[in-house]
Design a protein around this nucleic acid. Structure first.
Length: 382
DNA sequence: ATGGATGAG
DNA sequence: CATTCTCATCCAT
């Protein structure tokens, strides 16, 4: 296969700069509550980092400009335009978050090209890449790099968006190799270098699919390098992690990934949440929920499907000074009074009342009415 | 079906 | 460590 991974450079910051060109060239941070969730390269050069507190960021970089990124609408809109452009190259596009996409272009590769393509962009380990693989994948990947370049050119010319691309024979390797030259560059991995790319990661945690929880389990087993993960006896790994996970992550450690590019269809849930210092009365909760409901309903209306379930998310301040998220969900019938296949319109007064009542019932299942409680986040999803 | 754990950006 | 604001998948119940 030929898989391309496209990753937009500091996505939120690029969107803000396109919306407000006067930000161009200035250090820019995107703020959500007390945190700089991401920032542009100018800000990074001045010491600002992802997920840094606003306070620290401004100490490090007093000239930092902040844009509020709590409402994701602008980013969703741009993400959709990017997806549309990529889809014009291949129907097999999988979205990962708002700013990354995998594209399978295997079917577009010319079986017998008149002219052997040269590669566009970087080659991973260029010096060791003079061998041409007998199976023909080297030429296919070269052709893939040309297509990736065309995708990135089009994102730039039509949307003004710069991006990175990785080109490889599977999703894992495409994503990893694309990150080796940033920003606004692309890198192709020829299969002979796969193991070297994997070993260059150093820590198992850097493998997509190995998160913090699994990393802790691996550390308990004394596995703290890719090479140790490769060398661990599979039966020992199965004991600790189960057959499925053990096999999967050991395969990944060798750069093997058979997972398909899964076409992204409509989301299975649509939600909105809001965090705040603390609230402690049901009246305040009701008010927050109404506000959230208005925001979610915009998205639900655009989606067009009639919700059949509601879920409430609550983050409580636990005694031990750390917070815990809990969710409660239930079925909801929003069809009363309208034909069940009528187009979804704005929330009627009756519907709003029904949703809020349902949510307050769910809320009472989360909080212990007798004891005092502090809530620091509420979320609604359908 | 429900809710938590875990993973992604 | 999580912190923000989402969404998906897997698993136990």
């Amino acid at each position: 296969r030929v898989i391309i991974h496209i990753d937009i450079d500091c996505f939120y910051a690029q969107v803000e700069t396109i919306l407000n060109p006067s930000l161009c060239g200035k250090p820019l941070g995107i703020k959500q509550k007390n945190i700089v969730v991401t920032c542009n390269y100018e800000a990074r050069a001045l010491g600002v980092e992802k997920l840094m507190s606003i306070k620290t960021a401004l100490e490090k970089c007093p000239s930092l400009v902040l844009a509020n990124g709590e409402d994701l609408k602008k980013y969703r809109d741009m993400s959709e335009k990017i997806y549309q452009i990529l889809q014009s190259f291949s129907p097999f596009v999988e979205k990962l978050g708002l700013d990354e996409n995998f594209i399978d272009i295997s079917h577009k590769i010319n079986k017998s090209p008149e002219i052997k393509p040269e590669v566009s962009g970087h080659i991973f380990e260029e010096k060791n890449s003079d061998e041409t693989c007998a199976c023909g994948c080297t030429d296919r990947l070269k052709e893939g790099s040309i297509i990736a370049q065309e995708m990135r050119n089009q994102l730039k010319s039509e949307l003004g968006i710069t991006s990175c691309a990785g080109i490889a024979c599977n999703k894992l390797l495409a994503k990893l190799v694309g990150a080796t030259h940033k920003p606004n560059q692309q890198t192709t991995l020829f299969s002979a270098s796969s193991l070297n790319l994997m070993k260059s990661l150093k820590h198992p945690r850097n493998i997509p699919g190995i998160g913090s929880a699994m990393n802790r389990k691996l550390e308990v087993l004394g596995i703290d390098t890719i090479e140790k993960l490769q060398a661990t006896d599979l039966f020992k790994l199965i004991e600790a992690l189960g057959v499925k996970t053990a096999n999967q992550i050991q395969q990944l450690s060798f750069g093997i990934d058979d997972s398909h590019v899964k076409i992204t269809d409509r989301p299975k849930s649509i939600g909105a949440e809001d965090g705040f210092p603390t609230i402690k009365s049901e009246t305040e909760v009701r008010k927050k929920l109404k506000c959230l409901l208005d925001r979610v309903w915009e998205l639900v209306e655009k989606d067009g499907r009639r919700p059949s379930q509601v879920k409430l998310t609550v983050r409580k301040l636990h005694a031990t000074n750390h917070s815990v998220r809990e969710t409660r969900q239930t079925a909801i019938d929003l069809t009363t009074g309208v034909p069940s296949n009528a187009p979804l319109g704005p929330l009627s007064e009756n519907q709003e009342k029904k949703v809020i009542t349902t949510l307050m019932n769910l809320f009472e299942k989360v909080v212990n009415c007798d004891e005092s409680w502090q809530v620091t986040l509420l979320g609604i999803s359908f």
